[in-house]
Amino acid sequence: MNLSVKHLRAFVALAEQRNFTRAAQACHLSQSAFSTLIHTLEEQAGSRLFERTTRHVELSADGRRFEEVARRLLADFEAALADLRDHALRRKGRVSIAALPSLAAGDLPPLLAAFRARYPGIEIALFDLLADGCIDLVRRARADFALAPAPAQAADLRVEPLLRERFHLVCPAGHALAARRSVTPQALAGHPFIHLSRTSSVRQHLDAALHPERLEGVMEVEQLATVAGLVAAGLGITAVPTLALFQFRREGLVVRPLQIPGLSRDICLIRLKERGDTAAAAALIEDLRAHYGDGRAGAGTGPGPRLKPRQPRQPR
Rank of each mutant, 00 (worst) to 15 (best):
F50R: 13
A98F: 02
P120Y: 00
E67V: 10
P109D: 02
R118K: 15
G93K: 01
A114M: 07
A131S: 14
L103A: 02
L74M: 04
A113V: 00
R139Q: 10
L137V: 08
D86W: 04
A131D: 15
E68I: 07
S47Q: 15
A75I: 07
R139I: 10
Q44G: 02
E67K: 05
F127D: 04
I122V: 10
L74C: 04
L100K: 00
V138I: 15
P109G: 03
V69H: 06
R139C: 09
A99V: 05
L73T: 07
P110W: 02
L81N: 12
E67W: 09
I124K: 01
R64T: 12
L81M: 15
L126V: 10
L111W: 09
G63R: 09
A141Y: 06
R91C: 12
A80V: 08
L89W: 02
S102F: 03
A105T: 03
E123H: 15
S102G: 07
R55A: 14
A104F: 04
A75S: 12
L108V: 04
F50Y: 11
F127W: 14
D83L: 03
A98I: 04
R71Q: 13
L103W: 00
F66M: 15
D132C: 06
R116Q: 11
I122D: 11
F66S: 12
C134K: 02
G121Q: 09
A141R: 15
S102V: 04
L59K: 04
P110A: 06
F66A: 12
A104G: 09
A75K: 12
E78C: 08
D128V: 05
R142H: 13
G121N: 06
R64H: 09
K92V: 05
R140W: 02
G46E: 13
L59H: 06
A45L: 14
L137F: 08
R91K: 00
D132G: 08
P101V: 01
P110L: 07
V69S: 05
V69D: 13
